[in-house]
Write a protein that binds this DNA or RNA. Structure first.
Lengths: 243, 243
DNA sequence: CAGTGGTCTAGACCACGAA
DNA sequence: TCGTGGTCTAGACCACTGT
């Protein structure tokens, strides 16, 4: 009943932790593993997908399945609130940003609670570590709220500049909500991430003190090479019924 | 280049959104879909996995692939800070809780920063909606910090009682860190969730004002039927470099 | 029992990367 | 060019569900 590919994944995981396979080196090819475990290649591939989703293996097309450390994943932290020891471990990434004006699609209109077609400033961030993409971030600010201008210089991985730009324009964020879900990558994401591993999808909205949504963001993180961290400080005084 | 299973997934998604397939009704069987799209069954299955991970389809062994609404997913909110409209939408779940004493394994010892073998009070929560499990939560409190006692009555889905018990014992949580990652389910989780969909894995630690870890938790949420939401309130005064 | 999805096989052919 | 992983086929057999 316990699928055989799980036994294989467990065995490979154990061998990786025993350093039988070296970090940043490829495992034996899928064909060889199939022979060793006396199963077909697709079965081996499913076992490797399990390890990939754990961040222990990175599949590189045409090269092999490389042993990785899950601790070296990139870290997304809410609204630039850098967090604890993990943040320090997150390796420095190369980030590129583009700014343009778009009009709200159905999805964006629901996220930002603006009418369909409303003008938005879009900030598109791509974070890269070495040759591997660690995150796609699209931030949106309704131009009704404020008309921000690019370009963004020296961008941070998750678009913290937008918050600074908002503050400079006199728009202050009071509260941010991050929704995190897991899904499989879209065609585009699969191409960019070069991976079919599950994606951490983050939907974020920031509101000002009047409750108006002043910023929204859609992030896609490759689940095998990134994670999300949130810090909540408990107030000393027990407080409010939220409303 | 764009895998054909993605086209099939896109087509099915569109038909679902056009209400060509009814919510809570099964799609045509995988065999029939394979004939309709002129592909083999495994290809159809991959397309359905995409929709499953989006929460649009629930696969039920021996019954069929049922159309679902992603909005009806259960919501995990950090440390019981119920959140916005989404929380209201999260349907009420049946929750069972067990309390026992365990000694720290390697993983728990790293999470809680206690020595291996240290005694811990474990709270195990299982949340169910109808017949579908929506979350597994294991909370740990080092007995060195305080020796809590069960049983827990009328448990909440994510173990908020533990926080209350801590407070009653004079232990106050100052800060909570949630790490969210995506992985494929373990053998056990696959059995409990009855699904091979990606799991949202949450590692949580709570510290008191002295920085000591007073509680830790490991949560597994079925990615196709649950999501995580975090709310961050921005302080009015721009503050500290965290360190 | 019949119909469904779950796992697995033993191939085929294509796309990618390095030499 | 050759070895790698990515996609897909056309089955087989098992497990689960409802009748």
């Amino acid at each position: 009943m316990a699928a055989y590919y799980h036994s294989i994944a467990d065995d490979l995981r154990r061998r990786i932790e025993c350093a039988e396979y070296v970090v940043d080196e490829p495992l034996p090819s899928e064909a060889k593993l199939a022979i060793r475990y006396r199963v077909s290649v697709p079965t081996i591939r499913i076992a490797l997908e399990v390890l990939q989703a754990e961040g222990r293996v990175e599949k590189l097309h045409g090269r092999g399945n490389f042993v990785r450390r899950p601790e070296e994943r990139a870290v997304y932290g809410s609204a630039g609130h850098a967090v604890g020891r993990r943040a320090a471990e997150s390796p420095p990434m190369q980030v590129s940003a583009e700014v343009r004006t778009v009009s709200a699609t159905d999805g964006l209109s629901a996220l930002l609670q603006v009418r369909r077609g409303a003008l938005l400033t879009e900030f598109e961030y791509v974070s890269v570590l070495g040759t591997s993409v660690r995150g796609l971030a699209r931030l949106y600010v309704p131009q009704r709220v404020v008309k921000l201008k690019g370009p963004v210089v020296d961008p941070s991985p998750w678009g913290d500049e937008v918050r600074s730009l908002l503050a400079e324009a006199g728009v202050h964020v009071a509260s941010t909500v991050d929704r995190v879900a897991s899904r499989l990558p879209s065609t585009e994401e699969r191409k960019v991430f070069r991976s079919a591993a599950p994606v951490l999808a983050v939907e974020r909205t920031s509101t000002d003190f009047s409750g108006q949504i002043v910023e929204g963001a859609l992030l896609a993180l490759p689940g095998d090479r990134a994670e999300a961290v949130f810090t909540t400080r408990t107030h000393v005084e027990p407080m409010e019924a939220v409303g």
